[in-house]
Nucleic acid binder design. Structure first.
Lengths: 220, 220
DNA sequence: AAGTCAATAAATATCGATATTTTTAAATTT
DNA sequence: AAATTTAAAAATATCGATATTTATTGACTT
């Protein structure tokens, strides 16, 4: 009866599948910043209908990964140094606020989730799941802020930033500095519920990453 | 030949028209918070096709005025005291930042736009254009921050807040306190480029409005 | 030769119909 | 009578086709 949980059937809606594929392609640069996104092209590329593509593009508009030009279709959001700086600035302010709230509301459950996400991130270093694990760690850090909108903004901004990492390095280029140590600092401070130390560590992490990326992005 | 500039033809896309109508209806409560939004119903209500309705709902999802439930359609975003508090908190942080940046980058052009928007708001007091003029004033205040994403967030949060004003009072209920004076304080401080005074005035304005609305929304 | 205009081509936006999926209601079983 | 299954109804998601709109090309005028 409830044993076969739709084995080979459809897992999700066509719209959602298109959304995820297009998002990935924009983040990684497979669809370059500023590129015109023609429905028909994407339709054949994703092997789906025009309606799901259209709706996926509408959704990506909310994520600021796609721009809609009123009667003239869609295009991948342009990239610029100014845009990068803006994202960085907003991230620092919003994530700082979210992290502080999270720590102030700390619970054993949150602490456990944090430990797991940290462990998982370390384990997946140098694998293709690191990107997801890394985001998961950062989102878990702020997941206890009890502020869904704030979390949503942070998630959006995180994704927007990914794109610039790919633009800078064509992928997961992790430089000389010790990212692991930076993460450990944030993690340790959060676990011992030291709001200020965690904030300093997080902001330092962002500042360093930001400075590095800026040097790589000067051609923009 | 280019004399007749489409007199009775179509001014804008059906999607945009649907978007504006639905947005208005959600903000004013014509479509109550939490209500299921059935495509067919809205289609007949707006006298348009299903595609524009669907796309308009997708767009409203980005504004957090509509929620999409994966295979189960859409509904108007629920309202709650916690959500109201969250909006207020985010607004104060983001608008404070935006206002300070705006003032720091002050130019004669911005100053003039500010004077006009302030004048226009005073002129439209007690008319049905006040709502628009009021938003325009607040957006003009932060329009010089040179931060499109920040402006977008502020605009979104402003709209979300409108809904709670309607929930509290069934429309433009402006209480005993002297809103005009509060606006004048913000305006004066901004024009004389006094960042801190402007910030204090703006935050005080939000704090007072927030406290008042909270007392009216206890039933939520 | 530069610019304007008209005709063509391409792409978007929209519609109407169909296929899935979810919800509701009824019937059957325990 | 409560619970589960089945059948019917409603609603959503998707497709394919058409109508508008925008972009392009080439001819014509100055």
């Amino acid at each position: 009866m409830s044993l076969m949980d739709d084995t080979s059937g459809r897992e999700t809606s066509a719209t959602r599948a298109a959304y995820l594929s297009l998002r990935e392609m924009i983040l990684t640069g497979a669809l370059p910043a500023g590129k015109k996104l023609k429905i028909e092209e994407l339709r054949t590329l994703l092997d789906t209908g025009a309606s799901p593509v259209r709706e996926a593009l509408s959704l990506l508009t909310s994520d600021m990964l796609v721009e809609r030009i009123d009667q003239r279709g869609f295009r991948a959001a342009p990239a610029s140094l100014a845009n990068f700086d803006e994202i960085l600035k907003l991230r620092t302010v919003l994530e700082d606020m979210a992290l502080r709230q999270s720590i102030n509301l700390a619970t054993p459950d949150w602490e456990e989730r944090l430990v797991l996400s940290h462990h998982h991130m370390k384990r997946s270093a140098d694998t293709d799941t690191f990107e997801d694990a890394h985001k998961n760690f950062h989102m878990t850090l702020i997941s206890n802020a009890n502020s869904p909108m704030l979390e949503r903004y942070c998630s959006q901004l995180y994704d927007l930033n990914i794109r610039y990492r790919y633009l800078a390095a064509g992928g997961a280029n992790y430089q000389k500095r010790d990212i692991t140590a930076e993460h450990d600092d944030i993690f340790d401070a959060a676990v011992r519920r030291d709001e200020n130390a965690a904030s300093v560590a997080l902001l330092s992490h962002y500042r360093l990453t930001g400075e590095y990326l800026s040097t790589q992005l000067t051609y923009l």
